[in-house]
Structures are given as C-alpha cells and as structure tokens.
Amino acid sequence: MLTLLKIEWLKVKKYKAFWIIFAFLILLFPSVTMGFGRMLSEFTKGTPGVDAVLGGPFDFNQVFLTAAYLNNGLNIAWGMLLILMIGNEFQNRTIRQNVIDGQQRNDIITSKLILVGIFSLFSALLLMASGFIAGLIFAKNSFHFNADLFEVFGTFLFASFMQMLFALVFAFLLKRPALSVILYLGYTVFVENILVIILVAIFKTTYVKLFFTQAADELTTVALTKKYPVNGSMDALPAEAPWIACVLYAALILFFLYRYINRTILK
C-alpha cells in the first residue's frame, strides 16, 4: 500500500493539471460559500424575521451544512482530474507497462482508490475551512464544537468519494481523456439532471433522485433538509436513503472495476 502511495505521489507531484485544479478548488470552495453568504446578507438586510424563516444558514454550525450543500458540485472537478490522469495513463500505455513490469492488475484500481480517498479528504477539509471562514464573516453567533461538525465532515467526505467513484467508471470504461471528461461533465451536469426531472414526473417518487451520481448529491441535500427543514418539504427522502443507495453503488462499482481490470486487454 505504501509503495502504491509512493508511485501515485510520483505521478501526481509533477502533474500540472493536479496543481491547477487543486489551486482552483482552494479558491473556489471559500469563494462559493462566501459569495452566497454575501448575496444572502444583501437580500435580507433590513428584513425582520428572515433568520427565523431560513434558520440562519450562515450561523455556526449550520454554515458547514450550507457550505456542503453549496460546494457539492465542485467535487466534479476532482472527478475530471481523475479522468484526465487515468485517460492519459491509458493513452500513453503506462498502465500496460506497469503491469508488464510486475504490477498486479488489482493494484491499478487500488492505487486509484487511494487517490480518491486522498482527494476526498482534501475536499472535506476545504469544505470545513471554507465553512469556518464564511461563518467568521457572516455568522451572528460564535463557533462551538459539537458532533454536527463530524457529521458534516463525514457526509461530505463520503459524497466526494462517491462522486469520484462515479468518475472512475467513466475513466476506465472510456479510456480516452478528452472524450471521458466531456461525457462525464455532460452526463453529470446536464443529462442526468434532466433525466431525473423526467423520471420524477413519470414515477411521482423522489426515490428517483437516488439515480446514479444524483445519490451522491442527495447525501448533502438530505442532510441539510433533515437538520434544517426550511420548506418542510413533504416529499423529502428518508435520511438513510442516500447512504444506503451510495453504499450499494460503491459496492457495485468496486465489483465492476476490479472485475473489468482483470479481464480487459491492456493495449
């Protein structure tokens, strides 16, 4: 495991796209959270009783859940990075060479899962930092340490992990970096959202929102609405539903990836 980590670090540390996306996310996480905080404070300025209705979304520690909800989509950038890295490895035939040199095929997947884990951790830490900064600026109360922090951290960590796991499917199935990134973005940002709207209209059930990558989004959405039922949504999903769906998806994806890599021809 340590050797795999060393190998992945050697690959990542001089990969420009990694540092560009990392820098982009370091800037974007707090920017998105603070941007919305500023917008909200502008709109609600001088409006009495608004906090009672909204529940103070930028107060401590609600601000972390709000930040998780707002920044969830940014995990797609990590997914894109993984797709680019893996696509380049297939294109330059380095995955093939690594196997020739004695790497176990399973280790190809394991090494990428290590990256997914590390990127998810980065993402969750960035979320907590951006939530904290936004809270310092916009909260009307002071920071207090409680179990909610761990819940938000854990939920976002898992949501990030899942988003990247879905990206791995695109990366390993399509193998071509540009094509995979375009299809991944097109699918997660547009196609799937439209598909879910249509399916909800047809089947009249919110469980459709657990369709593929939407399940990862629902982790933070459900967590937020569970804690702070702003509109008291009647058709909200049970809190466990996205967790169960994501665990099932994760098991299926891992089974598929390990099986696929052991059977595919490494050209």
Binding site: I7, L10, K11, K14, Y15, K16, N88, E89, N92, R93, T94, R96, Q97, N98, D101
Partner: peptide, 15 residues
C-alpha cells in the same frame, strides 16, 4: 511507454 510529463529519472523510479 512512460509518463510524458515526468523526466527519465522519475520514470525509472516508478519502474
């Protein structure tokens, strides 16, 4: 077959 963005030394290190 090597990583195009890595130098010769780093590529051999991976091998």
């Amino acid at each position: 077959n090597f990583y195009t963005y890595l130098n010769a030394y780093d590529n051999l290190k991976i091998t």
